[in-house]
């Protein structure tokens, strides 16, 4: 049956690949907790957000199948994230120059 899939079907992700991604997510959680104990000054928030972003990319691409979806999906997600980024950047411009 796998040979005759509807064209809108995404690629079937194997259990092994899911497990690998899960392991990566757990490892990144461990790293973010370990790094939080070190005093990195202003880098604390930057590393925490960088690790969270990597974890999010793993969930989006593999768990949520974004990697295997039509390109339109990725453009949509990029536009949504860009919109939120614009909100944040504009707010901080306003806040910083008060």
């Amino acid at each position: 049956m796998a040979d005759h899939h509807h064209s809108s079907d995404t690629h079937i992700v194997g259990y092994g690949q899911y497990l690998l991604i899960w392991f990566g997510l757990i490892a990144l959680t461990g790293i973010t907790v370990a790094v939080a104990g070190i005093d990195l000054g202003r880098w604390v928030i930057i590393t925490a957000l960088a690790i969270a972003s990597i974890k999010t990319l793993l969930v989006l691409n593999i768990f949520m199948h974004l990697k295997f979806e039509d390109r339109t999906f990725r453009i949509f997600v990029a536009v949504a994230v860009l919109t939120l980024t614009i909100f944040i950047v504009l707010t901080f411009f306003d806040y910083a120059f008060h």
């Binding site: 079937i12 194997g14 259990y15 899911y18 497990l19 991604i21 899960w22 997510l25 768990f63």
Partner: peptide, 13 residues
């Protein structure tokens, strides 16, 4: 939560 996401994703497979 990460593990719960894993099992949810696997259920589709």
């Amino acid at each position: 939560l990460l593990t719960s996401s894993l099992t949810a994703a696997m259920s589709i497979t």
